[in-house]
Design a protein around this nucleic acid. Structure first.
Lengths: 198, 198
DNA sequence: GTATGTATACTAACCAGTGAATATACACAA
DNA sequence: TTGTGTATATTCACTGGTTAGTATACATAC
């Protein structure tokens, strides 16, 4: 049955996403992805030139939706800057309580492929995290915070730290602890700013 | 050549450590470990009942040395509590600049084996991080900090976050940024304590 | 009648784990 | 001092299964 093509490619990426995220990159074979997508491996290799290419597509598909979710959680929270950022951590803790949650796909992929530094999937993961960092930086800059890049990176470190720690201990309360730390750091930065301007 | 045994087991763990840390768990075959240790796979299976068992031994061997290194960096630093904790991050940044550095073996293993929650290696990793957390907690408690467990967890989150982020971006300066955040959090906790005690 | 897309069938390598045999060191007996 | 049994340690050769990737042919749409 030829001619679907675009939907076919999409179906493959969907299947790859579910499997790679749930089981890990090297654990999942191309055959398994093809089977889950309901087609043969040969067809998969028509749409993707290699497994590495497929792994990159898996992460690329998560980039925008993930960022949009963080922005939504931030925007919907009622309160000042510290509270809005903390809301991201609280929502993340809620996601992490779902039984199928298995951490951050970008970080887990970079951990698994740590022996292949230039791998396209790692590049996509790095770009994704940079986008998040830059969104935070811009947000902090708008609020007049003194060193917005540094603060953005510190929040990012807490966020990615909570992904790693919660995955290890399977205890989402660490995310709320990270959120409190984020709030403290932002409040401190805002206080410094007040002192300088006041 | 029979009868070495203890040194043999040790040699296997050494070989496994180098390979698993550098290339990843599932990337490395038992044959490769045996070859690097200079013996046959059958001998390896005499000392370890399975590959999973070997992976657990790899992490178990890293537990105490890793903790000792952190304690050493803390003890050798000149200054108050915030500076001593920050010194851990600075030393870590120095290690991360070595070309063979590939993040935290415990976290990378838990990321790679995220689909096997009860895996013995993950348990060992979790116990390792708990030991570090508890050492920090006790240290903070000795200094009279109000909620020492919370602060210990926040520092841990920054530490593990820096492992993840530096591995992704290959930019060790994030570790120094994390160290600054740690210092800020500790200083804030000490200031609160000061206010309460008057 | 040619581009595009899909399937069958295959390769060559790899991989975790095992069955059976063997070699050595050491304890103890003669 | 020499012979012998036994637990420990090691090797060779193998199995059954999996893997990423491909050569070739076939089907459909326009």
């Amino acid at each position: 049955m030829p001619r679907p093509s675009e939907p076919t490619r999409e179906r493959i990426v969907q299947a790859a996403s579910a499997l790679f995220y749930n089981e890990g990159i090297r654990r999942v074979s191309v055959d398994e992805v093809a089977a889950r997508a309901g087609l043969t491996k040969r067809t998969l290799y028509y749409h993707f030139k290699s497994k590495d290419d497929l792994v990159a597509a898996y992460l690329a598909a998560r980039d925008q939706p993930n960022l949009a979710l963080f922005r939504k959680w931030f925007a919907e929270a009622e309160g000042g800057l510290p509270v809005k950022v903390e809301a991201i951590f609280k929502n993340l803790a809620r996601s992490a309580r779902h039984p199928k949650w298995k951490g951050c796909g970008f970080l887990r992929t970079s951990a698994e492929l740590a022996n292949m530094p230039g791998h396209p999937a790692i590049r996509i993961g790095a770009a994704h995290k940079k986008k998040f960092e830059d969104w935070l930086r811009a947000t902090f800059a708008d609020e007049g915070i003194a060193d917005p890049l540094k603060l953005a990176r510190q929040i990012l470190l807490l966020l990615d730290g909570s992904f790693a720690v919660v995955l290890l201990h399977r205890d989402p309360s660490y995310m709320e602890t990270a959120g409190e730390a984020a709030r403290t750091l932002i409040e401190t930065a805002l206080a410094k700013q007040g002192r300088k301007r006041g």
